Amino acid sequence: MPRGTVAGQPYARAEALTVRLGGRTVLRGVELTARAGEVLALVGPNGAGKSTLLAALAADLPAAGGAVHIDGRPAVDWSAPELALRRSVLPQSAALSFPFTVAEVVRMGRAPWAGTPAADADEGAVAAAMAATEVAGFAGRPFSALSGGERARVALARVLAQRAPLLLLDEPTAALDLRHQELVLGIFRERAAAGDAVVAVLHDLGLAAAYADRAAVLHDGVIAAQGPPAEVFTAELLSRVYRQPVEVFGHPRTGIPLVMPHRDP
């Protein structure tokens, strides 16, 4: 069973991590820590290595160099069932070949706990996850009949129902409207406040600045900067990484960084 978490405690770590795909080096010497009680945003342009890093942290991709540790042990030392108790993964897209209902898809998140004392919490975990993501109203509908945004929320509900202490989420807001983007990021903050480590790939720098405790800016397979968004989201760094001039200024009420493309009048 996973150990209890303590706020600020490292739960997953990449140490000098190098990953190669198809003969190409995608990540080079990456150092990153996901801590209990924090939301960590992975940001950067397309092709920077964000999804690869997330998959490596999940132990779904092998390291060509360095190592990944989860819950105090090298990730390669955990079996697949043991990993499923410790980390849950939301991929970029969710597709199912069989006509499962929404409730059945969410209940799949409880599979790792079958045969353990935690299985007694299955129904409560499923109901809570569906309520949090606002999908309970169409629990009986086929997953295949849902819109893209609805599927994204159901897939997230599955991850939440799993109740693993490490959440790894790849572009969880990409298909969502404004309301549900805010809803989902609020859920991540709640999970972090409850002691989970949350790592999310985000393209929206405004959401990352507003909700993440720390951000790692990836560029060409390395981490160009990491730290609180207010410190690392600078116009100079982001303009260079994204190859697009940007302006960064504080929100007039909250002071949270706002990132805007520089546009001539």
Rank of each mutant, 00 (worst) to 15 (best):
E190N: 14
V232K: 03
S147T: 05
P91E: 13
L146W: 05
A200G: 05
L218N: 09
R179E: 07
T18C: 06
G22V: 07
H203F: 08
P142W: 01
A194R: 12
A197R: 00
A64E: 14
P228R: 14
V89E: 08
E38G: 15
P10C: 13
V135G: 00
L32A: 06
R24A: 15
P10S: 15
V105G: 06
L202S: 08
R189G: 11
P99F: 06
R24D: 10
V68C: 06
D60I: 00
A56H: 01
T133Y: 02
L53A: 01
G22Y: 10
L207N: 10
V248S: 05
E134S: 03
P172G: 14
P62W: 09
P142T: 11
L218R: 02
M108W: 10
I70T: 03
A132E: 06
G124M: 02
L160N: 05
A208Y: 10
F188E: 11
G65A: 12
V241A: 11
A95Y: 14
E150M: 08
R3K: 04
A127I: 01
A174F: 04
R243D: 11
S51A: 04
P81E: 12
A197M: 03
Y242Q: 09
H203T: 10
V126L: 00
V30E: 01
E150A: 04
S97N: 13
P112R: 03
A230C: 03
G140N: 09
V201L: 03
A59L: 09
R153Q: 05
R240S: 14
L32R: 01
Q92T: 14
V184A: 11
G149D: 07
L183N: 13
P245E: 14
F188H: 12
L61E: 10
A155S: 09
R240I: 01
E31K: 12
A48R: 01
G29H: 06
A125C: 11
G8D: 08
V89Q: 06
L17Y: 04
W78L: 15
G49H: 01
L183H: 09
